[in-house]
């Protein structure tokens, strides 16, 4: 059978493989190579070795955007997960209208980042001007918290769904046994339910961290990095290095930053893989 299928490889493999080479493999390999070059177009590149990486690390806006992104990721991850878990706990209590609540909380997830960013820009700017405070584009702190609020609004519903699935798989007998043994609901939560949903918690934590690190559309639409790049996250910083800085050297530096960014995301993903694997062993 394997032999018969093998003969048909041009039909089964070739279309996707060709597109994959065009859309991923070639751009990735070229990108890796160009991070060691000075270039303005792909064909006009001169080798400069590690120069781009040295300059990328020396670029203060890059360092700033890294710390801004990290601070954003930590706060967003904590807030989103606590709130999503709390909502999931409530919605698994067989409340009236659970279905409706679930529908509402999940919905923002389906709206694209650009549209979301613009909606919140209008809302937050109106609110800020009502309070007599500077607008989003003028106040870095407002931009930071605006991004956090937006991210919570978008992601809570998604994480809530994963937590609900996790909580529903905890057997009722286990909770009943805990109650019979005299555990308070609070203790049952910490000693029975949370340990049982650890796999869901791991998934959600990593999803929120990677989503926060890769955030681009929302950042562009909500603040655009204003004021003066002080609400600029990593992805937007790389984009701006490529497309809005004058000078022949910046494209190479941008590509070097992109490789650093890529390695950062890979490290986070590998940590996730290890964390989920070790949890699987315990169960």
């Amino acid at each position: 059978m394997e032999k018969a299928i093998k003969k048909y490889w041009p039909i089964f493999v070739l279309p996707t493989l060709t597109a994959f080479i065009i859309g991923f493999i070639v751009p990735f390999a070229e990108g890796l190579y160009l991070s060691f070059c000075k270039f303005t177009t792909v064909n006009k590149a001169t080798w400069v070795g590690l120069g781009n990486y040295v300059r990328a690390f020396a670029d203060n806006t890059f360092k700033y955007s890294f710390w801004f992104t990290a601070a954003f990721a930590v706060v967003a991850t904590i807030l989103i997960n606590i709130l999503a878990f709390a909502v999931a706990l409530l919605l698994t209590r067989k409340l009236k209208g659970s279905h409706f609540f679930r529908t509402v909380f999940f919905m923002p997830n389906l709206i694209g980042g650009i549209v979301l960013g613009y909606i919140w820009q209008i809302l937050l700017n109106s609110l800020l001007s009502l309070l007599g405070r500077p607008l989003l584009a003028l106040d870095a702190a407002a931009g930071y918290w605006g991004l956090i609020i937006l991210m919570c609004w978008q992601q809570i519903g998604y994480m809530m769904i994963i937590y609900i699935a996790g909580l529903q798989s905890v057997p009722d007998e286990l909770l009943e046994a805990a109650t019979v043994d005299g555990a308070s609901p609070w203790k049952a939560l910490w000693k029975v339910r949370i340990p049982m949903v650890m796999p869901s918690i791991t998934i959600c934590l990593f999803l929120t961290v990677t989503n926060s690190f890769k955030l681009f559309d929302q950042n562009l639409a909500l603040t655009g990095g204003e004021p003066a790049h002080s609400s600029e996250m990593l992805a937007l910083n790389i984009y701006n290095t490529f497309y809005s800085r004058a000078g022949a050297q910046w494209k190479g530096i941008g590509q070097a930053k992109a490789v650093i960014f890529f390695l950062l995301v890979v490290i986070i993903s590998l940590l996730q893989l290890r964390a989920t694997r070790s949890k699987e062993v315990q169960q």
């Binding site: 859309g23 941008g254 992109a258 960014f261 995301v265």
Partner: peptide, 17 residues
């Protein structure tokens, strides 16, 4: 390829396209 962020291939993908 699922792990690679878009910014990594952004510039070169455009020129390939």
């Amino acid at each position: 390829s699922m792990v690679v962020p878009f910014q990594m291939v952004m510039f070169t993908l455009v020129s390939t396209a």
